[in-house]
Design a protein around this nucleic acid. Structure first.
Length: 756
DNA sequence: GAGTTTGAAACT
DNA sequence: CAGTTTCAAACTC
C-alpha cells in the first residue's frame, strides 16, 4: 500500500515505542528499520523467503523490538550490568526497578533482591521447564492460550531480550511472528494474526479494532521492554492494566479475528512452507507448541547468556503482575513463564537461530561465541531464512566455495531433502550452528543425530569436557563463553545448566568480582581505529589483541595453547610469552606481514574464496558495526544491530555457509577474514572466537578503508579501545540505518574497557 | 581413545 | 605480586 500504509506502519512503530519510550533512540531505530526494509538487499531476501508478506510488518516492529533486544543482550554479561550509565544497562536496571512496582501489584516481588530470590526460588521450576526431557512432555505451552495477549506480550518482550544482538533481526522476527501466530492460532489466533497482520495491516486496513488491540499489545510489550525509562514504568503499567482489561482485550481480539482471519490463514500457509512451520504445523497445535517450545527452549538457552535469566525473570514477573488480574499469581507466574517461554522461545529461537553470539558471548558468543553466539547466531538465522526460503539459491551461492564447503554443501543438501524434517533440522542446525543446541537437541533423537553430526562440523559451538570444575569455572569453555553447557558437552557434574541458573549466575558474579573482564571476550580489538593511543601495536595487522596476553613458554605462540593464536590475534606487549612466533603478530610486532603471507600461502585458497571473501568483506564492514569498539561481548547491542544490518548482505554471505550451520557460518566469516587465517582457523574448532575477533580487528581497518592487514597497526594489547568508533560507523555509506542503530547501541553499550 | 603437553585459571 | 597447583584444552601417539 502506498506511502500512507508505510507511514502508518512507521508511525505505529513509533507510536508503540513512543508511549513506552519517548526516547529519541526509539525513533531512530524505527526509522532505520524502514530504511532497511527498503534496501535492495532486503528485498532480495524477501524474494527468497516465502514469508515475505509478514516480513515487512515485522521489520518495523522488529526494529523496535530489536532496539530493545539489543539492549538486553548487551547486558548479558553480568559485569556489564554493573555499568549503569549506558542505555543498555538501563534496561536491566530499570527492569529491576520496575519489578518493585509490579511487585506492589502482585505483592510477590519486593525488590530486585526479592525478585532474584523469587527467581531463584522458582529457578528449579523454570529450569525444569527448560529441561529437555521435560520440554517435550510439557504442556506448559498450553497456558499460552489462556492468555494470548500475555503470551504475545511476553513473547515480544522476550524476543527483545532474547534477541541478542547477534540475532539477525529480520529473519528472527519472521520466524518469531510465525511461531507466535501458529501457536496462538487456535485460540489466540486472532491476536497472533492481528499482531502479524498489523504491520501488514497496512494492507488490510481493518484494523481499527485490531489496531487498537495491536497497539495495546505492543504498548504492553513495549512497556515491558521499555522498562528502560523509569518514567515510563508508570505509564506502561497503566497500559498493562488497560490491556488486561478483559473487555477490551476480547473485543480487540474479536476484531482481530474477523479482520485477520484470512491473513492468518495465509500466514499459516506461508508458515507451513517454512521449515519451522512444517514442524509446527505438522500436528495438533499442542504438538506444534511443544515443538516450538522445545525449539525455543533450546534456542533460548543458547541465547541465554547467563544474564538472560534475569531478564526472563523480570519478564515473568512483569507478565505475572500484569496477568494477575486474570489469574492467580501462582498460576500467572507459572503460566506467564510458560507463555513467555513459548513466545520467547519462538522469538528467541527464531531470532537466535537467525542470529550469534549470543556471543555469546559471546565471548560467546562471542564469538563466543564463541562467537558462536554472535556470528553463529547470525549465521544460523540466515540459514533458517535461506534454507527455508530457498535452498537452491543457497546452493548456487555455495558453489563459489564449493571446494571449501563441499562437504558442507552436501550436508545441507541432505538436510534440505525432507521438508518436514528440514524444518526441525533447520532449526536444529541453526541452534547448533549458533552453538546453542542444548535442550532442543536433546529432546529429539533426530536432533541428537544432527547434533552428533554437527558436533564435528560445528566447531563453533562450544563444548566442554570438564570433569572437576563442574563447568563453573573459567576452565570451562562454555561457562567462560557465557553459555550453558549443551548436549555435545561431555562434562561431568555439570552445573552450567539452566537448572542451576542461580548457581551459575552467582558463580559468574563471583568471578567477575575478582576480574570484571573475566567474561569479556578474550580478544579485544583494541583499535577500531587505527590510531590507538600509544600502542605500538599499530604495526600489527589486526588491532585486536588478547585482553590479557599470553604466557606461552613452549608453544611459541604457534599453537592453540596460545590464546592469542587461538584468538587469531598477534601477541602484544601484554604477552609474557617466550620465543613468540605468533603468526598473527609477534610480540615485537614485526611478524605480522610475514605471517600473513605465510597464511596466504597456506591458504592456497582458491581465488574463488578470495572472491567470496571480497563479497564477504562487505559483510565484514557491516559487521564492523558489530564489533564493539570496546570489546565485543558475545551478546552486545551492536551485534543485534549487526544482525539487522547483516540480513541484507547475509543473503550473500550465507550461501557459502548456509549449508552448514556451524561450519558454513564460520567459513563465511572466515572468508571475511582478510588474513587468510581461514586455513589456519578453519580446521580449528574455535573459529567463532576468531571470527569475531578477526572481524573486529578487520573492521577497523575496513572502516579506515585500508584492508591490508599490514597496514594494521599494532594496537597495544592493553590499549583497549577507549571509545567506540561511532563516527566510523556513521560514516560508512549505505548502512545508515544500521549505523543509526549502532550509534544508539554503542552509546548505550558500556564499554568494558574503560571501566575495567 | 589414552596419554602427554601446555598454559590459563585458581589458589596460596 | 609471585609461586604453585589445578584444570581442561590441545596435541600426540
Amino acid at each position: 500500500m502506498g506511502e500512507e500504509s508505510e507511514r502508518e506502519s512507521e508511525s505505529e512503530a513509533c507510536g508503540r515505542g513512543g508511549p513506552v519510550m519517548d526516547t529519541p533512540v526509539r525513533n531512530q531505530i524505527a526509522a532505520p528499520g524502514s530504511q532497511f526494509e527498503e534496501s535492495p538487499v532486503f528485498n532480495y531476501i524477501n524474494s527468497l523467503s516465502p514469508i515475505k508478506t509478514v516480513k515487512p510488518t515485522r521489520i518495523s516492529q522488529t526494529f523496535n523490538s530489536y532496539s530493545f533486544a539489543s539492549l538486553p543482550s548487551i547486558f548479558t554479561s553480568p559485569h556489564v550490568s554493573s555499568l549503569k550509565e549506558s542505555g543498555c544497562l538501563r534496561r536491566h536496571h530499570l527492569s529491576d526497578p520496575l519489578k518493585p512496582e509490579f511487585s506492589s501489584d502482585n505483592g510477590n516481588k519486593v525488590g530486585v533482591t526479592g525478585v532474584v530470590a523469587d527467581v531463584l526460588h522458582n529457578s528449579d521450576e523454570q529450569t525444569e521447564n527448560f529441561d529437555p526431557g521435560s520440554c517435550i512432555g510439557e504442556s506448559s505451552v498450553e497456558p499460552t492460550y489462556e492468555c494470548p495477549e500475555l503470551a504475545i506480550e511476553v513473547s515480544r518482550t522476550l524476543s527483545y531480550d532474547c534477541g541478542s544482538p547477534e540475532c539477525s533481526a529480520t529473519p528472527c522476527h519472521r520466524i518469531e511472528t510465525k511461531c507466535v501466530s501458529e501457536l496462538e492460532v487456535p485460540e489466540a489466533m486472532f491476536l497472533g494474526s492481528g499482531v502479524h497482520l498489523e504491520g501488514i495491516s497496512n494492507t488490510e486496513q481493518n484494523k481499527e479494532g485490531e489496531g487498537r488491540d495491536w497497539e495495546s499489545l505492543i504498548s504492553d510489550a513495549a512497556g515491558l521492554l521499555s522498562f528502560d525509562s523509569p518514567n515510563d514504568t508508570e505509564a506502561s503499567k497503566g497500559r498493562f492494566q488497560e490491556s488486561l482489561d478483559p473487555g477490551t482485550r476480547k473485543s480487540s481480539l474479536q476484531v482481530g479475528k474477523e479482520g485477520h482471519l484470512k491473513d492468518l490463514e495465509a500466514t499459516r500457509d506461508i508458515l507451513a512452507s517454512t521449515s519451522i512451520n512444517t514442524c509446527v504445523a505438522a500436528s495438533s497445535q499442542q504438538q506444534d507448541n511443544e515443538h516450538v517450545s522445545n525449539l525455543h527452549r533450546g534456542i533460548r538457552r543458547r541465547c541465554l547468556v547467563f544474564e538472560m535469566a534475569g531478564a526472563y525473570r523480570k519478564h515473568l514477573d512483569d507478565s505475572s503482575s500484569s496477568g494477575s488480574s486474570i489469574l492467580s499469581q501462582s498460576e500467572v507466574n507459572n503460566e506467564s513463564r510458560d507463555k513467555q517461554m513459548v513466545p520467547i522461545r519462538t522469538g528467541n529461537g527464531s531470532s537466535r537461530c537467525v542470529l550469534p553470539g549470543i556471543g555469546l558471548h559471546l565471548n560467546a558468543l562471542a564469538t563466543t561465541s564463541k562467537n558462536c553466539t554472535i556470528s553463529n547466531n547470525l549465521a544460523s538465522g540466515r540459514q533458517l531464512i535461506t534454507e527455508s526460503s530457498s535452498a537452491a539459491p543457497l546452493h548456487s551461492l555455495t558453489t563459489g566455495q564449493e571446494s571449501l564447503n563441499k562437504s558442507l554443501t552436501v550436508t545441507s543438501a541432505e538436510r534440505h531433502v525432507g521438508p518436514a524434517e528440514n524444518g526441525i533440522q533447520n532449526i536444529e542446525d541453526a541452534s547448533l550452528a549458533s552453538g546453542y543446541i542444548e535442550e532442543f537437541s536433546q529432546s529429539s533423537p533426530k536432533k541428537k543425530r544432527r547434533r552428533l553430526e554437527n558436533a564435528g562440523e560445528s566447531e563453533g559451538c562450544k563444548r566442554c569436557n570438564c570433569k572437576k570444575s563442574k563447568c563453573l569455572k573459567l576452565y570451562c569453555e562454555c561457562f567462560a563463553a557465557g553459555v550453558y553447557c549443551v548436549e555435545p558437552c561431555t562434562c561431568q557434574e555439570c552445573f552450567n545448566k539452566p537448572a542451576h541458573e542461580d548457581i551459575v549466575l552467582a558463580t559468574r558474579k563471583q568471578i567477575e568480582s575478582r576480574y570484571p573482564l573475566a567474561f569479556a571476550p578474550k580478544v579485544i580489538r583494541s583499535s577500531d581505529s587505527v590510531p590507538e593511543i600509544g600502542d605500538e601495536s599499530s604495526k600489527t595487522p589486526a588491532s585486536a589483541r588478547h585482553k590479557r596476553g599470553c604466557n606461552c613458554k613452549k608453544s611459541g605462540c604457534l599453537k592453540k595453547y596460545c590464546e592469542c593464536f587461538q584468538g587469531g590475534v598477534g601477541c602484544s606487549i601484554n604477552c609474557r610469552c617466550e620465543g613468540c612466533k605468533n603468526a598473527f603478530g609477534r610480540k615485537d610486532g614485526s611478524t605480522f606481514i610475514v605471517a600473513e603471507t605465510e597464511l596466504e600461502e597456506e591458504e592456497t585458497e582458491t581465488s574463488e574464496k578470495s572472491v567470496i571473501n571480497k563479497s564477504l568483506r562487505k559483510n565484514v564492514i557491516q559487521n564492523s558495526i558489530e564489533q564493539n569498539p570496546d570489546s565485543a561481548l558475545p551478546a552486545t547491542p551492536l551485534r543485534s544491530v549487526r544482525a539487522l544490518v547483516h540480513l541484507p548482505f547475509s543473503s550473500k554471505s550465507k550461501p557459502p555457509r548456509s549449508s552448514l550451520l556451524s561450519i558454513g557460518s564460520s567459513s563465511g566469516f572466515y572468508g571475511v577474514q582478510k588474513f587468510g587465517k581461514q586455513n589456519f582457523l578453519q580446521p580449528q574448532p574455535k573459529f567463532e572466537k576468531r571470527i569475531q575477533d578477526v572481524q573486529e580487528d578487520e573492521m577497523p581497518e575496513i572502516l579506515q578503508g585500508d584492508s591490508s592487514p599490514i597496514s594494521g597497526v599494532k594496537s597495544s594489547p592493553n590499549s583497549k579501545r577507549v571509545s567506540p568508533p561511532h563516527t566510523d560507523f556513521g560514516s560508512s555509506p549505505g548502512r545508515r540505518s544500521s549505523r543509526k542503530l549502532i550509534l544508539q547501541s554503542i552509546p548505550s553499550f558500556p564499554s568494558l574497557t574503560p571501566k575495567h
